[in-house]
Amino acid sequence: MSKKQALGNQALESQGARPFIELRALTHAYALEGGGEVRALQGIDLTIERGEFVALVGPNGSGKSTLVRHLNGLLLPTSGQVWVDGLLTAHPSSLWKIRERVGMVFQNPENQFVASTVEEDVAFGPENLGLPPDELRRRVDDALKLVGLTEYATHPPHMLSGGQKQRTAIAGALATRPACIILDEPTSMLDPLGRRRTLETLRSLNQDQGITILLVTQSMDEATAAERMLVMVRGRVVSDGTPAEVFGQGQRLREWGLGLPSALEIADRLRERGLNLPAGLLTVEQLASALC
């Protein structure tokens, strides 16, 4: 049994089989300036288990950011409920425990740094918990090691590359020892190398540390790497399944304005030209071996 499964089972026992994150009929409405409101989330029911790696995709303005900001109480439901690790986000007393357990990384790495050195920035979360300096030091060192930035500890964040900045932000989230990290389009401003390193980091955190990952992304190729994929359109989750299941709906994805992973797009065009190919070819490797 892998460490991840072990953690998952342990969690099941200790939490009486309750999912780690549970949304019940979650609705969120923003008031408009001239009166009226926009319903950004329209009755979402969703559960995420410990140890899952979930990708959340959807066009701009579909409510992805609004949804994830509910998962650590940055936003509170207009109606419905959000449970995290058995705690209700609407309870003010639970908020700080929830934020300790659910870390969050944002799109623009430049705007989430508080401090002028990498290690001090990583320390910000645990400093807020009031931990003693020795413990802070241990947590910062551990977190930097997990993202592979130990040698950059004393660098100023603005001198790092985009990918290193995002990994610093991930280390900052890790330093409170969360069970889950939510990332809101963390790779959209990065070059391919930065993207690759960030995704590798997330994968190893999920595999080796059993940390639940919820990755919001615009890249369909990134989404195929997840175990589970959610599609949001106009405030609703319209599809929920493995990437193979979600991308199997072909035409609907185009209607949602989402595009396809490259391999799937090529496979579709080959089918149009008369080649007989099996369904569910998500990666170039799968497509190549189906053709050979």
């Binding site: 701009n60 799109q107 959209s188 615009q218 369909m220 304005g257 989402l258 595009g259």
Partner: peptide, 10 residues
């Protein structure tokens, strides 16, 4: 096309 969704990019 930075930060545009697939449709906006297209």
């Amino acid at each position: 096309t930075a930060n545009l969704d697939p449709r906006g990019r297209q």
